[in-house]
Every structure is written in C-alpha cells, then in structure tokens.
C-alpha cells in the first residue's frame, strides 16, 4: 500500500512535523507498510459492537472546587525556551 505524496504532506501539516523533501518517499513506504498491517482490521466482524468501550468500567471522579495549586511561575518558566515579563514568547501569532 502506498500513500500519496499529497497525503503525507497533509499529515505532516496536521501533525506539525517538517518532512525533508528527500525522505518523503521512504516515509510514505513505511507508513504504507503499517497501514497494510492495520487494514487487517477491516476483515473483522464487529457488527453490533459499541466501540466506545473503556478498559475498566469506571466512572469519572469529580474534584471539589477548591484551589490547590499555588503560583509556581518561576519554577515552571525556568523550563521554557523563551519568556519575558512572565509570558511565554513565540514568533508572532497572526490570526
């Protein structure tokens, strides 16, 4: 199974991963190989099955609405690549 170049480019855009021109074919071949594997699923008879199953039948616990987190900006922003005046900096966001 081969994936078209256009498709790979679309995936790369959605996933925000730059793919070098020279590697697109190879990436496509290997993705195709994996998709061939997962295509085996199509043969399964799953009629009448609810796919939204959870591993463990449990329900969501709810947290009380109490403030438990204190300001840790300094410690957390120490990990950031670029900050100024308490803000995380990124190249200009254009809406």
């Amino acid at each position: 199974m081969n994936i078209e170049r256009q498709e790979i480019e679309k995936l790369a855009t959605l996933a925000r991963i730059a793919i070098e021109e020279g590697t697109i074919t190879g990436v496509g071949e290997r993705l195709g190989s994996v998709l061939e594997l997962v295509d085996q699923l199509q043969a399964a008879d799953t009629s009448g099955l609810d796919g939204k199953s959870y591993s463990i039948q449990a329900i969501q616990r709810l947290r009380e609405d109490e403030v438990t987190e204190i300001n840790q900006r300094e410690a957390l922003q120490a990990l950031a690549p670029d900050t100024e005046e308490g803000l995380f900096l990124v190249p200009k966001v254009i809406e």
Partner: peptide
Amino acid sequence: SAGYYDAYYGKAQQVRKL
C-alpha cells in the same frame, strides 16, 4: 483524520471490544 476515523479508529475500538 476526516474520512478515515470510522474505518480505522472506530473499527479498532470495536475490535478492542472483541
């Protein structure tokens, strides 16, 4: 992604149930 969800993710979750 749009157009593949049911065939892949949806189906895989059903198989998971199987």
